[in-house]
Amino acid sequence: MLALVSVFVVGFVVEWLSHTRFLKSTADNITAGLVQTTMYAVRVGLAYLLMLAVMSFNVGVLLAAVGGCTVGFFIFGSRVFVNSKATPFQDPSDLPPLNC
C-alpha cells in the first residue's frame, strides 16, 4: 500500500513541477539558470523513477501512477482552479515541456 501511495505522490509531484513557476522576474541570469537546471533535473529524475515503477508490469502501480499524474494535472494544469478564461498554457512554467 505504501508503494502505491508513493507512486501516486511521485506522479503528482511531476505534474506540479511541470506547471509551477519558480523564478521571480528580478532574478539574475546565472541564478535563474541554476534554478531551472536543478528543477529540470529533479523533474526528469522523478519522471524516470515513475517510468521504472510502471515497468514493473504491476497494474496497481500503473493505476497509481496514472492517477497521480491525472490529479496533479487536474489541480495544476487544468482551468478548474483558474479564474481567467485564458488557457493555462499561455503562462508557461519555467521548465520546458516533458517531451522525450
Rank of each mutant, 00 (worst) to 15 (best):
F12H: 07
F12S: 02
V13Q: 05
V13P: 00
V13Y: 02
E15V: 06
S18D: 07
S18T: 12
T20G: 00
R21L: 04
F22T: 03
F22W: 07
T26E: 14
A27Q: 08
A27V: 11
I30Q: 11
I30D: 12
I30F: 14
A32V: 05
G33F: 02
L34I: 06
L34G: 00
L34C: 03
V35D: 00
V35P: 04
V35F: 07
Q36T: 15
T37M: 05
T37F: 03
T38Y: 08
M39A: 09
Y40A: 14
Y40S: 14
Y40C: 11
A41D: 14
V42E: 04
V44T: 14
G45Q: 13
G45C: 08
L46V: 10
L46I: 09
Y48D: 09
Y48A: 08
M51K: 12
M51Q: 12
A53Q: 12
A53Y: 04
V54R: 08
V54W: 12
M55I: 14
S56Q: 15
N58T: 09
N58P: 07
V59P: 00
G60S: 10
G60L: 12
V61H: 07
V61G: 02
L62W: 13
L62D: 01
L63D: 02
A64N: 06
A65L: 12
V66T: 10
G67C: 05
C69L: 15
C69P: 00
C69D: 00
T70D: 01
T70S: 10
T70P: 00
